[in-house]
Design a binder for these strands. Structure first.
Length: 419
RNA sequence: CGGGGCGUAGUAUACCGGUAGUACGCUUGGUUUGGGACCAAGUAGACCGAGUUCGAUUCUCGGCGCCCCGACCA
């Protein structure tokens, strides 16, 4: 894409109402736009990154047998009444609205109820199990206080997968598979080294759950990390008996602040019981379906990546989630020949399937470099009088900024080598 | 929801009980051209309502919005 055509623009100053690093940088670089407290729109660059993250999650969910669907955002109270969760006392973040023809609707804060009800139409035999169903769908949560930029918002997309199993053993097997898949996801988006599977409270559904916590000072949670075992314990369950169960000592743990980037938890038969989701076993006996729930918010993950990897100059995207593979920057000084050469490089990159943002704007080098650093695309290629005279283009990585001259014919090979 | 803070051009800010200044941006012209250039001329603003006052962007009250701390958070 030609940057001269991109309708967004970078800014030197972040809006004064944004304090969090992720929102400051994402707004300054033109990835997102704030609509109101806790509500953000995604702009071209931001949407590209969002989609990259979504695709990574999709691939890993498909790899463990997930089947993608989309449930509705509007919710019928009836199904929530069956689980006693229509009441604001049960879910205090409900957005509810009225139907003009009379009656109420809810905006989905989560999707256990509608999916369990839906699945009861399709699951009736042990032969129908297990089933793993997921979606990327907007959740609405009427948080008392939105905060931390795009990390705690009132409207956000969540990947939520629900597992339907015949037995506790079958459920556990998948639960661990999903845990592995989550580890791959966090590794691919570039935060694997600072993300810990964290033992946590199970809330109202089960005794315990597992959270994926990324170390981050801007995080809301406090966890105790066991560096050697690569696990952690959430402060909410940081108790002697829990530590004993896990076989770890207090002295081996380090207190850290962290942001929850994913969670997996057992639902047991809480929803299948109340919504009548059961199956007939080999003996024709009715059995409850064992469920589990597995969530990741791509938007929050995007914010977390920014928080974790940004430097003083701006965002630093890992390869797999960057909006483009390459930022091609021309420094023409008004020289049409240089512009033509940069255009040729742009076309050559595209012909080779490289996603490239081409800064073809009539701007000075300093401004272009500053913007390039802010936007954070992993590889920068510069075409200028200097590089043409030297017979190539300059290639630099966002992570270290050091430029080296690369012959035009070697560019594609070098780019693939970095993939 | 408790506590604190803040609402001035697109963005960041300043001053002031007598109708608003600066920087960035944007427009036009010129000079520049490898780390956010320079000159000139333009463009654009007081959250809403009520009150006090000769006069309110400024003071008071109410509303709305935003931020932070806490509480809450499958």
């Amino acid at each position: 894409m030609r940057q001269s055509q991109l309708f967004t623009r970078t800014r030197k100053d972040a809006p004064k109402d944004e304090v969090s690093l992720n929102a400051q940088l994402l707004i300054r670089a033109g990835f997102i736009h704030k609509e109101m407290a806790g509500v953000y729109s995604f702009l071209p660059l931001g949407l590209r990154t969002f989609k990259k993250i979504e695709q990574i999650i999709r691939e890993e969910m498909n790899a463990i047998g997930g089947q993608e669907i989309t449930l509705s955002a509007l919710q019928d109270p009836k199904v929530w009444e069956k689980t006693n969760r229509w009441d604001d006392a049960a879910i205090d973040v409900w957005f509810k609205t009225a139907l003009k023809s009379g009656g109420e609707l809810g905006l989905a804060p989560t999707h256990e109820e509608p999916l369990t009800a839906l699945m009861s139409e399709y699951i009736s035999s042990y032969k129908d199990l297990p089933a793993y169903v997921y979606q990327f769908q907007t959740k609405f949560r009427n948080e008392l206080r939105a905060k931390s930029g795009i990390m705690r918002v009132r409207e956000f997309v969540m990947k939520d997968l629900y597992s339907f199993s015949k037995s506790e053993a079958e459920f556990r097997d998948f639960y661990e598979k999903c845990a592995k898949a989550y580890e791959k996801i966090f590794k691919r988006v570039g935060i694997g080294d600072r993300t810990y599977r964290t033992f946590a409270s199970g809330g109202s559904f089960s005794k315990f759950s597992d959270e994926y916590q990324m170390l981050c000072d801007a995080g809301e949670d406090v966890i105790y990390v066991h560096e050697k075992k690569r696990i952690a314990v959430n402060k909410e369950v940081y108790k002697d008996d829990v530590l004993k169960d896990l076989g770890i000592e207090k002295s081996e743990l380090k207190e850290e602040k962290a942001i929850e980037v994913g969670n997996i938890f057992p639902l047991g038969t809480r929803f299948s019981d109340s919504l009548g989701l059961k199956y007939k076993d080999e003996d024709g006996k009715d059995m409850p379906v064992i469920m589990g729930s597995y969530g990741i918010g791509p938007g929050r993950l995007m914010g977390a990546v920014v928080e974790a990897l940004a430097d003083k100059k701006g965002i630093v995207w890992p390869k797999e989630v960057a909006p483009f593979d390459v930022h091609l920057v021309s420094i023409t000084g008004g020289n049409v020949e240089i512009e033509k050469e940069a255009d040729r490089t742009y076309e050559m990159l595209q012909e080779n399937g490289i996603e490239v943002l081409y800064d073809d704007r009539d701007a000075r080098a300093g401004e272009k470099f500053a913007d390039s650093d802010l936007i954070g695309i992993p590889v920068r290629l510069v075409v200028s009088e200097k590089t043409i005279e030297a017979g190539g283009v300059e290639m630099a990585l966002r992570t270290n900024g050091k430029g080296t001259l690369v012959a035009e014919s070697d560019i594609i090979d070098k780019l693939h080598a970095k993939k």
